[in-house]
Design a binder for these strands. Sequence first.
RNA 1: GCGCCUGUGGCGGAAUUGGUAGACGCGCUAGACUUAGGAUCUAGUUUCUCCCGAAGUGCAGGUUCGAGUCCUGUCAGGCGCACCA
Length: 974
Amino acid sequence: MAKEYNFREIEKKWHQRWVEQQTYHVTEDQNRKKFYVLNMFPYPSGAGLHVGHPLGYIASDIYARYKRLQGFNVLNPMGYDAYGLPAEQYAIKTGQHPEKTTFANIERYREQLDKIGFSFDWDREVRTCTPIYYKWTQWAFQKMFMSFFCNKTQKAMPIEVLTEHFEKEGTGDWDVACTEEMSFTAEEWNSWDEKKRSDVLMNYRLAFMGETMVNWCPALGTVLANDEVVNGVSERGGYPVEQKKMRQWCLRVSAYSQRLLDGLETIEWSESIKETQKNWIGRSEGAEIKIPYMLSAEGEPEGAFTIFTTRADTMFGVTFFVLAPESELVDKVTTPEQRAAVDEYIKYVKSRTERERMIDHTVTGVFCGAYGINPITGEKCPIYVAEYVLAGYGTGAIMAVPAHDSRDYAFAKHFNLPIIPLVEGADVSEESYDAKEGIVMNSPRTEGGSVNYDGESLNLNGKTIKEAIAETKRFVKAHNLGRVKVNYRLRDAIFSRQRYWGEPFPVYYKNGIPTMVPEECLPIELPQVDKFLPTETGEPPLGNATKWAWDEKNKKIVENSLIDQKNVFPIELYTMPGFAGSSAYYLRYMDPHNNEALVSDKAASYWQNVDLYVGGSEHATGHLIYSRFWNKFLFDLGVSKKDEPFQKLINQGMIQGWSSFVYRLRNTNKFVSFDLLEEQYDDAKKKNIYYYQGTEADPVYADISMVSGNVLNVEKIREWTAEFRDAEFILNANGQYIVNQAIEKMSKSKYNVVNPDDICENYGADTLRLYEMFLGPIEQSKPWDVAGIDGCFRFLKKFWMLFWDKDGQLQVDDSEPTAENMKSLHKLIKKVSADIEEFSYNTSIPAFMVATTELTSQKCRSRKVLEPMIVTLAPFCPHIAEELWEALGHSTTVCDAPWPKWDDKYLVESMVKMPVQFNGKVRFTIDLAADMPKDEIEKAALSAPEAAKYLEGQQVVKTVVVPGRIINIVIRPA
RNA sequence: GCGCCUGUGGCGGAAUUGGUAGACGCGCUAGACUUAGGAUCUAGUUUCUCCCGAAGUGCAGGUUCGAGUCCUGUCAGGCGCACCA
């Protein structure tokens, strides 16, 4: 009887063994080099793991195991991003405490993960919702509150440094990051009371409370960060989002804009994700220019506002100015005559949702009545209010150059404003010329068309646009008309949410002043509430807590009834957003049980930062920005030891599922087979509409388990839900019901989820691991398709049979391997080593298959070949590798074996390959030994047996050695 | 509109620095062993052609002795940002 590959027994055995022997437990071993592998930790959703989740985990596990075999001390932890909206919404619906459902989901995740055989060190598990973990989230927030950012040194510093400065010099000319630029003297600062100083400091703190425009989602009852809003609706749930001015906690992420941009140059991330971050940060170099304005066409200027432009060269083409409707300036520049029109316009703008504004780009706007004076030309131009100018970017005011900006152009055409071309040869009769190329003209248009400052007036005619921009900036700066300015699109992150299931803020309100709970009292634990909804008075859910007040003297949380505003004060009702807990978790893994520090200096110094980070690219503008920001702050504090948290990033693609649709005739309970429907494209809705005998049919999801191929199992779907039980199914001529299929993201709501447990059950974890890697390049999205899984399973069976004879006896001996054996082995080692380094695991699997087939047909028995084979396979399929390793008589785990080294000497078969004739020449490819001199290459080529048949009877005229490994031999027929 | 990425058989996808295109798997075809096979094994499988042979990596050019790979243009698909001045 042959010995069967019994994966169930093998995998169960080794899962137990690994736990008993703590095979994957790591400590800070100073004698070994560290390697830190990290997966983006999952949110434990109620749906459990699907086959897409493990894709990245398997890829990183292979790398972690490979690095360990190479002798590195590998940290490969796992945990849970446990705060989140779904658990809270489930709680609102059912009354179940989110902690209960979250922990239940975590148990389920753990069970599923354990089946796949990862090398995680579970002793280091973190859960963001546990007090021991979020203590350090709160701690970091407090540190940010107690810090400001110096633009000169580009570093965070303690806020005391700034207050000392204010006491002595007021604002002075210290360039620090702030919400709005302020200017006050030391006397003023010293005269202010505590409340006023607190308000002023909010302008500088890295974590601050600010009155800002926020994305308010009424359906979710909370504010959202910019990256949580997609196409004007909430990312979760797809509810409408509106702009609202609210007091919220914010993080001054924008202070780090330049460092976030510069850091991208030092890390190994894909170009596309770096590009996405660059776009999101959105650096633009330009100039701010002061524009004096007057309320009537005659008279003296009454004030000035500032505009921002990247095209300073176009100052001579300005024909009007535009303010954002939300800008505070609007009020000042509106004349009594225009007041009614402006008010009405602003009312109109406010009535529009974010989404409407995004989709609809019709030209709207209104004249304010005032005129701005162009400081370069001295011309007076009308000031408009229009929604195409955004309050949040630049100064919320622009100079309009219709000839060279398409938005200004559309506006000018609509309101019949003049258009002045400034570039030679540019035709602006139909559209604007936006390109930054060409020679400047009309600048100035006439003699004296350029205002003289201190004996100098600007003339740009004949210059290239690039030169003209530089020259104008110089001019503006030299004559104090404005300043050179770099703007960033990156906004500060809104850091508070009106929800229950999140980290509470360690903040109480002392007579209206936000005050930090002392550090030694952390964490402030999330209070119990009986309802998870907002209170009747519209307070956030924490308003339902009855014991949520801070006793300042006794330093503890007490009943709300004790609030007296002398010793006992109310605690913050907001909670932190999802990204709070996930921003520094990689540091916590280094030292997860430490209650004295986020991470000890010793652990942080040893592990440094994450060498390899694996996760989805959907976090490009969220987590991956926040986390880099958070880390840079902690780096400034000296807690983190590296400026960038994630050295190398691999974005695994999504595994998509096949969704199936059945079609219900509208207002009936009849379902029609897809092939009987007529299809029509609807331009307005941009999708296909289906009809059956004139009645429209609506798609309904059918669970993937009820479909084989594209045929629906009608009996099964009847049992599925009540909706289908009594339905009538109209079948096609073959008596089948055909479904429509589409490839979509795997999701519970689309009924297309494939669970990895089934694969583990039927084929084993090793096959699942192998197959997920074999599906295609790790970074690509691809649909799940079980078609090829048998191939992987067959391979493992073949590999297994390499070791056992017909009677189930081990057939490995100590014989010397043949040259052929060694070639098969070393080819494999070379290929797999290179593939793992480059994350192209999908191509190492064929190499395994080829080597196994070759060694099987060679009847290889040699331990010297088969043992390294096992080690090479171990990162991919650890269970089968362990089993065989043990069978070969080893008492230690295969994880501690050395990774085999390949040797080229077994691979070079012959010196000369591929002789080809052309134009009287013969061309050879030669495998070069390391430093072979040129004349030896020639000699080898000419004397090679393969060359003989081409060179026989011919006269060699010339030989040319091309750099690389090509040699051309010119011959003349004898 | 701006930026980034990708185009190779029926399918997923391979092809060191430019060097025999289509590895490996799926599917398909034929055969073997079988009562049977959706088990296993063997052979074949880019296209055209009776064969010899020829063509062939979205399309059109270019560089090169030689291009899937490099360059230019173009088309198609995907992703990101988007009245960002």
